[in-house]
């Protein structure tokens, strides 16, 4: 089975995010970028499936700017066999990303797509679900356990109330949650080898998908900073406020 792993270039989770002066976006000027942490988990899962003899080949794919090659190289160092960058300088919305990916899935005869459950920049959590819909495949989101036996996928999902178990038909689209695994560090020799693994770059426009965005971002603002409230004189006064004014206890 061929596995496709989607890898997104996002701001490093450790950097401080600031809205730009024009209020059009966040300021990404020389900000450290990294592979989306949930995509890293998806990548790790793919490698484990290959190590278990279930996957035959892992293709890491990114849709983004030329610099996203860095993140694909990281994926290759973690164990992907080859990389594909669908290049687009413009940030594309999830529906477009899903459509482009569906084209690749068909081209490459993919049996399982692994993605992160969301990217930590736009926080949409849509691409996997949309891709699954377009392909007409089964869908396993927020996975915390992936188990493939005899062409069925036993999946455990993290849901609000706890854990949900599903049996999915293959092919399938799975989005990965935090507790699925702990991604490995890419070793130095593997990083070096990754530089020599095949990485194909194709313009997004070549796939025959309408790339125009249906969603317009009108404004990006900083969240309101909290204002300080009042100092209360006693525990009794505090409880009274919490009960009567706020109704939180």
């Amino acid at each position: 089975m061929k596995i496709l792993v989607m890898v997104k270039r996002v701001t490093d989770p450790n950097v401080i995010i600031r809205v730009n002066a024009e209020n059009t976006s966040v300021d990404l000027n020389n900000v450290k970028m990294a592979i989306n942490p949930f995509c890293e988990i998806a990548m790790e899962e793919a490698v484990r499936l290959k190590e278990a003899g279930i996957a035959t080949e892992i293709i890491a794919m990114s849709i983004g700017p030329a610099q996203a090659q860095d993140q694909l190289r990281t994926a290759l160092a973690m164990g992907a066999d080859r990389g594909l960058l669908v290049e687009s300088e413009e940030s594309l919305e999830p529906l477009t990303v899903a459509k482009l990916t569906a084209k690749v899935v068909e081209e490459e005869q993919i049996g399982l797509v692994l993605l992160g459950k969301q990217s930590i920049d736009t926080d949409n959590s849509q691409t996997g679900q949309m891709l699954s819909a377009i392909l007409g495949w089964s869908q396993g989101t927020f996975a915390s356990k992936v188990d493939i036996v005899d062409n069925t996928l036993n999946l455990t999902r993290e849901v609000d109330s706890g854990l949900q178990s599903l049996t999915l038909t293959l092919p399938s689209v799975v989005t990965c949650d935090l507790r699925l695994n702990e991604p490995r560090f890419a070793s130095l020799p593997n990083i070096m080898k990754a530089k020599r693994k095949p990485l194909v770059i194709k313009p997004a426009a070549d796939y025959g998908v309408d790339l125009t965005s249906k969603i317009k971002t009108l404004k990006v603002e900083s969240p309101n900073t909290r204002q300080s409230g009042e100092i209360v004189g006693s525990v009794a006064a505090l409880l009274d406020k919490l009960k009567t004014e706020k109704g939180v206890i």
């Binding site: 809205v19 930590i120 920049d121 736009t122 926080d123 990006v220 603002e221």
Partner: peptide, 9 residues
């Protein structure tokens, strides 16, 4: 967006 560090309209 960005884990609550910005609000987009």
């Amino acid at each position: 967006i960005y884990a609550g560090n910005a609000i987009a309209t």
